[in-house]
Design a binder for these strands. Structure first.
Lengths: 349, 349
DNA sequence: TATTAGCACTCAGGGAGCTAGAGTGCTAAA
DNA sequence: TTTAGCACTCTAGCTCCCTGAGTGCTAATA
């Protein structure tokens, strides 16, 4: 445990330094700490403590005559020491009014996943000034409701996949010969009876073997219909919602091109984002990943705050904020948390 | 006509300067022109010509001892003087191989507008290194095919709007009382008979008055169904596809934060983009808008190259590239043109 | 008369040198 | 154990200066 190494005094100083650096990204000097945070020590004492903290790896100096800057380890300590109680965590600046308003807004657009999550990410990034990312419900947690096949033109069929969560996807299928709407109804009925109530990924597991039989029993159209299920089973890259590159440009951390380029490179690769968020798709509560702790190379200079939203008790998708390591963790955590709760409420109803 | 003012010599020099500045964004000196472009004159002569060109407003000097830089008027001359013949316009660097490959790719994904246009914009921005924007087919040019109403859960109905172009939109409707699938079929049949074959915007025009009657004749559900049509009639802001902010960061023109911020601000406002592109939605062929010619404030420092794609002969949507004023117009024009042709081909088939 | 060589002039950009100030570590005193 | 004092370090910003690229003008040239 970190607190084994650090006495109370050191912890206070460390927290003061991190807090100050989060407030404004300038190396923190000993004098500044004594002035701003009334710890009851002289600069000299603070200097000694800071030297110790540096030795332990919590702080570092950009150069000899500069103040101290937190290391990843320093941020980690700071985050772990944040008050965890629901209400104390900084929710106060996110009013109940907002929660009600936002939940109401989501309620209206909940039938369209893409609108819903665009709204979620854009709200989150506008409020936080960090980049926000969201993943729609995972197929593992999505239950097949039924499929509808509609004859569209001569040899084109539209297939619509419905799930209990309301997520649905549609595809156009080219069918070789002409089929009647009655045929289509029969095929859809067959599939619906077979698969209703299964989770999409359960279906996927049995799909490959089944398809061979189906192909024999029915015509090609059935296998095409099943194909759609298959397609709906994977979260596509397009399903990663990202917003806030513009908002982030206001932060001093991204005032030079190199950092912005780095960040946009990271979030441009939606596949990578997907991988990142999936790591956290099962976890409960808000998780914070700081700098080098990140498994993704391009994010090692940044921090990520993630949480899951739920359908009832089951986490079904992920919401995250990506910002500089010196991000306002308390605020980011509470924002992600509040928004996830709103989304959960929307799915619950 | 500009060529009235300028003799051949001046035009050659002007073109050389613009070309050179497009190749690399450094003020062009007289000596450089003589070295690089063999016009058969000494630097002194070039200097005289350049001084004239500056007087006419085609060139300007960042400061006295620097070379010349094109003004908007200079670019305009350059663009107008570009060879217009199809093949000479620089298509050679976009191979037939690419066209075939790309058209094939579009063919596969053409049933999903959002995938289609994401592909179009991302391809275009990756190839050109400029920001690319696209607008899906406009409702004026979209013909109502039919609507399907599917009972989903107890009091939720899914409505699906089909058009001849294959664009369709779906919405969930809350219905107050329980309705049967038969009811829904009857309602859909009614709407389909009434509106089949009309352009979506024609429907919109008659909608308001009709709705009052329908409401009396049928129940609320009908008006909800018509509501969906209404919703589908407008191009929503979400329907503007934009890509390439990352690609553009490699250009020296956007090597400082201010420019990038400006650009992202401009393209963040999708509503504005929509307005911009709609200006060109009826025009034939490729249009170029340079700097101050732009009606949108945030784009006055940039250039826009737009064209339309067609369904048969009718232009139905817009594709554009946004880049620095010193963009490679020849290349941008031919790229936009080629891609629009590919898209047109996809709609035609 | 049109072109060019020559020349004086201008100005941005970059490097050298300097200073101010913030911050440190160490030592010795409280 | 804490603190005051002090010498030391290093960056950021400033000025000064110089270089080089490029100009405009004038006079010579074809």
């Amino acid at each position: 445990m970190i607190s084994d190494f650090l006495d109370k005094r050191s912890r206070l100083v460390l927290q003061a330094v991190v807090q100050s650096y989060i407030n404004s990204p300038e190396p923190v000097g000993s004098r500044y700490v004594t002035k701003k945070y009334d710890l009851g020590f002289s600069p000299a004492t603070i200097r000694n403590i800071m030297a110790d903290l540096e030795e332990f790896g919590f702080l570092s100096q950009p150069h000899t005559s500069a103040g101290r800057v937190p290391t990843d380890k320093g941020y980690r300590f700071f985050v772990d020491a944040l008050p965890v109680s629901e209400e104390a965590a900084g929710h106060e600046d996110i009013s109940n009014e907002f929660i009600n308003h936002f939940t109401g807004k989501l309620q209206v657009i909940k039938d369209d996943m893409s609108v819903l999550f665009s709204e979620v990410t854009s709200t989150l990034s506008t409020l936080s000034h960090y980049v926000s990312v969201a993943l729609p419900p995972k197929p593992e947690n999505t239950t097949f409701n039924r499929m509808e096949l509609i004859k569209y033109k001569r040899n084109i069929v539209i297939a619509i996949l419905l799930t209990d969560e309301g997520v649905f996807r549609n595809r156009m299928l080219n069918v070789p010969e002409e089929v009647t709407q009655e045929d289509l109804n029969r095929i859809a009925d067959y599939i619906n009876v077979e698969y209703a109530g299964y989770a999409l990924d359960e279906i996927r597991r049995t799909l490959v073997t089944r398809m061979k039989y189906e192909k024999v029993l029915w015509d090609k159209l059935v296998s095409k219909a099943i194909d759609i299920c298959e397609q709906a089973l994977h979260i596509a890259e397009d399903d990663v919602f990202i917003s806030g590159l513009y908002d982030v440009m206001d932060l001093p951390d991204f005032s030079d091109m190199a950092r912005i380029k780095e960040l946009s490179k990271a979030i441009k690769d939606k596949h990578m984002m997907l991988k990142l968020l999936e790591e956290f798709s099962e976890s409960e509560g808000v998780k914070v990943v700081i700098g080098e702790e990140n498994s993704i190379e391009d994010l090692k200079g940044l921090s990520v705050v993630t949480t899951t939203y739920k359908d009832g008790e089951r986490p079904i998708g992920v919401i995250a904020l990506i910002g500089p390591k010196r991000m306002n963790y308390a605020r980011a955590i509470s924002m992600v948390d509040v928004v996830a709760r709103c989304v959960s409420k929307t799915f619950g109803s």
